[in-house]
């Protein structure tokens, strides 16, 4: 990790519960994430791992517990929630690009609207980011003309344009055709190498093993096991982790 502020606390999660009606999805999660750390979250579907991620930037409001990012409490009802979210980028499984805007407009919209940059500056930053994800020639294209892998790379560029200190990835490659998974993971790998603090919910075990500093195995609404990739993948302690990994790695 080359980031100068590595080692300071980026995210602090205490006693996180989330209930949808009668269904308790998260049953008490405590988790600290250090600046510059890359955390991959794995687990069976329906285990609550996406909900966990969506609570971090308050797309889901916790039923109980607190979440702090950079020491600020994330609360959907708080007046400053929009400002707090500006510093937390998110990438979605379904890309969620704005189809009525061009690729460049998708990227510049938030920095300009939130008064982070002038229009010109945002365009310059946008071009740099598009170059980085290999899509400089698509600046004027409409999202619907792009392939899935291209869409997701634009979505990553859009999130990065706000210069967030933390990036959340919610199964970013799950909706992609297999041949496009690599191009998106490459961008994420590069981001991790640059020292970005990242939380990735993923089914890409190879990626998690290679890039993560820490792996969280979430099952039935709790962190059932956590540790370095070598520990979790190489020598899982919890039978549920063993069971899950056996199923996934067989496939």
């Amino acid at each position: 990790m080359t980031n100068a502020s590595t080692g300071t606390l980026k995210v602090e999660i205490r006693g996180l519960h989330k209930r949808f009606g009668d269904n308790e999805v998260l049953k008490g999660i405590d988790c600290d994430i250090q600046t510059g750390e890359v955390v991959c979250v794995i687990g069976p579907s329906g285990s609550g791992k996406s909900t966990f991620l969506r609570c971090i930037n308050c797309l889901e409001e916790p039923t109980a517990g607190t979440i702090k990012v950079d020491g600020n409490v994330m609360d959907a009802e708080a007046k400053n929630i929009d400002e707090l979210r500006e510093d937390v980028g998110m990438v979605f499984q379904q890309f969620n690009l704005f189809p009525h805007l061009s690729v460049m407009e998708n990227i510049t919209l938030a920095p300009v609207l939130r008064k982070r940059m002038s229009e010109d500056e945002a365009k310059r930053v946008g071009m740099d980011l598009l170059t980085r994800v290999g899509l400089a020639d698509k600046a004027d294209a409409r999202p619907n003309s792009l392939s899935g892998g291209q869409k997701q790379r634009v979505a990553i560029a859009r999130a990065l344009a706000m210069r967030p200190g933390l990036m959340l990835f919610d199964e970013p490659t799950s909706a992609l055709d297999p041949e496009m998974v690599g191009e998106v993971l490459d961008v994420m790998r590069q981001l991790a190498e640059e020292g970005m603090t990242m939380v990735c919910v993923t089914h890409e075990m190879g990626f998690a093993r290679q890039v993560a500093d820490r792996v969280l195995f979430i099952d039935q609404g709790v962190i059932a096991e956590e540790g370095s990739p070598d520990e979790v993948f190489g020598n899982p302690q919890n039978p549920r982790t063993q069971n899950f990994l056996n199923k996934v790695l067989e496939a």
């Binding site: 797309l59 400002e83 500006e86 980028g89 998110m90 969620n96 704005f98 919209l109 609207l113």
Partner: peptide, 29 residues
């Protein structure tokens, strides 16, 4: 698509900015 609102809010857009810049233009179409 509800994902449109989520994407806009995750970028820091306010509820009002999201409605006018993201939701309404698509709803009109």
């Amino acid at each position: 698509d509800p994902g449109q609102r989520e994407a806009a809010r995750s970028l820091g857009l306010s509820a009002r900015q999201t409605t006018w810049r993201i939701i309404i233009p698509q709803a009109i179409r």
